[in-house]
Design a binder for these strands. Structure first.
Lengths: 206, 206
DNA sequence: TCTGGGATCCAACCTTCGATTGATCCCGGC
DNA sequence: GCCGGGATCAATCGAAGGTTGGATCCCAGA
């Protein structure tokens, strides 16, 4: 019997998961959490074998932190991330936080249940689309921006002009441009708007 | 007995809605659709009294179009939009398409069921948060971009240059600039990146 | 030790963007 | 029918944005 805790802020999704999982004889849903905090508390209290964790919570504190906290518990349950989006940043964040798997909510039920069994057995379960993305990311050399470059890029994303950024960061606009050149080069683009777009995809920007 | 059609591309959500609604004696789920096209077809075929419609479908054709098509049917069922996000653009699109109500997926079940009963009775049902937003939007001078302007803005957000956009939309860059001038003016900005930033805040961009 | 790479800074060029003005066509409402 | 608004295009010009090149500083490693 696999004992499962569901953590999702949507009552509808919780009901759906429970309905889907109740048909499986070897799976038991032992609790439901509507917030990341509640998830951590219930995970410690109920000590399930697996936590089905949503990444997007309405209070924006996110499921990644909760995943991290749960994985740090004494009887650490496995965490299977179940989310709507397959952006690189989210995936990487979840994996780094210690998730055993990453599924999309539009996955067919049998895939979801197979992933649950795999994760409960200690294996890692990635949706095929996700696995592909991770591989692709591993293949290409790490894209890492310096702190300053990220600061500049954030200002750009907020709609600031080069001189705006220069004033706010107390440097000249020549320097801003210089930082941007490096950002462009690292992200493989050649305009500020494209940089913002790629930055979002990669999870550098929120 | 209220006969309902569920339209959502997530199996989990469909199961959840069905589970929640099955407990209500006067509500019957007569069908489930996983795509907007299927939703239109089943609505015509089953002629339910109400369609629970998701706005975000994976194939990006969107639930708004389906809502419009369903409302144009002979025995037009009411459409209750049920979605994750409360961005202004989505709400307005749904209301314009003829939705009787707009609910968020994180709404508590009793609220959902109350909304279903209200919508089936021909009343309009808005989640309180949504209603507030609509009110606020009505108060401040309408910011509405034309379809073409939104298309251009989306290209800008993706990082395209004016000539890129011109090629993709099969117009000249003079026209692109013209559209952008209007966008800037409507959004109260003076650069493409700022336009993207504001566009995101207003929910025009996703 | 010194050398090379990375981060930060700056300056002089060239290109693109945005403002401005003005024009035509089409469609729907008064 | 006339008017307004959306979509289309053109030409100009100054101001941003992007390119190239070079400067310093610091730290790790040959």
């Amino acid at each position: 019997m696999i004992r499962i805790l569901i953590a999702d802020d949507h009552p509808v999704v919780r009901a759906g998961l429970r309905a889907l999982l109740d048909t499986e004889p070897d799976i038991e849903v032992v609790g439901e959490a509507a917030t990341p905090q509640e998830a951590i508390g219930l995970a410690a209290q109920l000590s399930p074998e697996l936590v089905l964790m949503d990444l997007q919570f309405s209070d924006e504190s996110g499921g990644a932190g909760a995943t991290c906290a749960i994985r740090a518990l004494d009887a650490a349950p496995y965490v299977l991330v179940l989310t709507n989006y397959d952006t690189d940043g989210d995936i990487l964040g979840a994996v780094e936080a210690g998730a055993s798997g990453y599924l999309l909510k539009d996955a067919p039920p049998h895939e979801l249940i197979a992933a649950i069994r795999a994760a409960a057995a200690g294996e890692s379960a990635l949706a095929p689309a996700i696995a592909g993305r991770l591989m692709e990311r591993m293949r290409q050399p790490q894209i890492s921006l310096s702190v300053r470059e990220i600061e500049v890029l954030q200002q750009v994303a907020a709609g600031a002009s080069n001189t705006d950024i220069a004033n706010r960061l107390h440097i000249t606009d020549a320097t801003v441009k210089s930082h941007l050149v490096h950002v462009f080069s690292k992200l493989g683009v050649s305009s500020r708007t494209a940089a913002v777009s790629v930055g979002r995809e990669l999870g550098i920007l929120r």
